[in-house]
Design a protein around this nucleic acid. Structure first.
Lengths: 300, 300
DNA sequence: GCTATTGTTCGTTTTTATCGAATCGAGACG
DNA sequence: CGTCTCGATTCGATAAAAACGAACAATAGC
């Protein structure tokens, strides 16, 4: 029988990337966490982490375990909520799925218009991998999905992807990281520490290709599915990280990082995916219309 | 934070219907289980069971919690399996979803041909509600879904429903239940205790309509999503229960029940749902072809 | 080569889960 | 109506687990 407490500990460590931080988050001491993780690995008979130096990184098995763990605790949270709100008014909420790769600030920016409609709507957000969200969309458990790419063709789902807008990207970094870099942008990125989006992001491939074409070879020190986590690491000085231009100003302010440079060659795009060809849900409509305005070139 | 150990205990009690039996299954004493369940309810702030006499029955909240719990432990089991078979040969298995409403005997009958193919296939079965299975089908995590209805139109999934066959149904009951009934079939069903399929079953509505049209008003004493569970209750003398004719003979033998009568007016149908229009997966093809033979009228 | 940081090991303490014995309540039965 | 049985429950004692403190090992940065 799987130990779900251990699974939870594992997930926290995997998400934060360090036993230290996870221990703090869980209100535990590092030695406890270390022991529990080892016990978990022993019971499973599989190594979840590779100990490289004093650093922990997920093994292949760890990565698959993490995706399952995400599912499990996601449903667990839903369960709790379902039981709490059991006697609440059965209002039909506006259910939006947000692909992991979409920066939270963008998601907010895109969704905000839905909250200012004449009739008040209850917004229910769910974050997950696009694949999962699309499946939920197909069985009408979501009204809309926000993603950084259209609905992939290999998913046999009747859905329509409405482009919301696109923009270039900016490269940001903490001052301590930016200072030592020499040369102009983008040359200064050469051999600089760089954080890149994870495999689920549509940005990843164009970004790597752009670097290659420019003859720039940064040191890729981290890979993040979640852009907020990437920003946090960037703030801490882990490396240079890309953000969509629409949010660059806010990120710089919030995370106290500076801009190294920007390019319009790499385009970050955003889509609203719905099952209806015509956007009829008033909230979906509001989001879609507002998006066109907010991505006007003048604003960037 | 949800206590997953408690959730597991809860699920076992809910599934077995009694603390006693659950305790035995879990290798625990009843008093432990009782205490842990109470603690769980207290922490959740919701009653999961209603204590009616010395019997336990699920509350409304309990029922919803159970469906979530099923999901959670289902994924948990998948996780364990995924980690165990990590170094096994990456054989691409034949992944079949079986809607809850499909009797297990039928599922076996339909799938058996896939196991006798020239090249051996590894069959992976997953049971769930049709809705969930269809979603997994759409993202290619299943090759085929067996259901008792075509793909509902309100799910916006590109899938094709291939009719596998159909048959009438038989009404079975334990001898002790059948004896006191007077009159011919179907009149004898009037005011008889009857078990019916749950809401997810395509059979439910036609069955109720048929009874109404015949002017028969049985006492509906139970409702089951799972036909095997229904048969078990039927065997124990809970009431008369319907089964598809194709399996009537086997059920009568296995559960020591007798047939009250049969009708061809209510049709139980079976479908294979796949994402491809043309059935190309050899195993899917084998299943589909064999189905036509096994449902020949002569065999019923 | 120091030093701060990060993860681990070991024995002890605290918390949680479990059990045995006894109790309660509902239904069955003479 | 009492009595018996069965299932759930309460309570204090006991066992298992999780968590901690202290000490240690390894590494990256200075």
């Amino acid at each position: 029988m799987l130990n779900y407490k251990h699974l939870h500990y594992f997930r926290t460590v995997a998400k934060t990337g360090a036993i230290n931080r996870a221990a703090e988050k869980l209100h535990l001491t590092p030695q406890t966490l270390s022991g529990q993780i080892s016990a978990f690995e022993t019971r499973l008979g599989v190594d979840l982490f590779r100990r490289s130096g004093r650093r922990l990184e997920l093994t292949d098995a760890g990565r698959t375990a993490l995706t399952y763990a995400d599912d499990i605790f996601h449903i667990g949270a839903e369960l709790e909520e379902a039981l709490q709100n059991r006697d609440a008014a059965p209002v039909h909420p506006f259910r939006v799925g947000i692909a992991d790769a979409v920066p939270k600030a963008i998601a907010y920016q895109l969704l905000a218009p839905a909250l200012t409609l004449a009739e008040p709507v209850k917004l229910v957000c769910k974050e997950d991998r696009l694949e999962k969200l699309a499946a939920e969309l197909s069985i009408h458990r979501l009204d809309m999905v926000l993603a950084d790419r259209p609905l992939p063709a290999n998913m046999d789902i009747r859905g329509y992807s409405h482009p919301l807008g696109e923009c270039g990207i900016a490269f940001l970094a903490a001052a301590a990281v930016a200072q030592p870099l020499h040369g102009d942008f983008p040359g200064c990125l050469d051999s600089a520490p760089l954080l890149i989006p994870g495999e689920d992001s549509a940005l990843r491939v164009p970004l790597l290709r752009w670097l290659e074409k420019k003859g720039i070879a940064p040191r890729i020190v981290g890979e993040f599915d979640d852009s907020a986590l990437m920003s946090a690491f960037g703030q801490a000085g882990a490396g240079v990280f890309p953000v969509p231009l629409t949010t660059a100003r806010d990120v710089m302010k919030q995370y106290q990082v500076i801009e190294l440079g920007r390019t319009q060659d790499i385009r970050e795009r955003f889509f609203a995916i719905s099952v209806e060809r015509r956007l009829s849900h008033p909230a979906v409509l509001a989001v879609s219309e507002a998006a066109r305005r907010s991505f006007e070139p003048g604003k960037l």
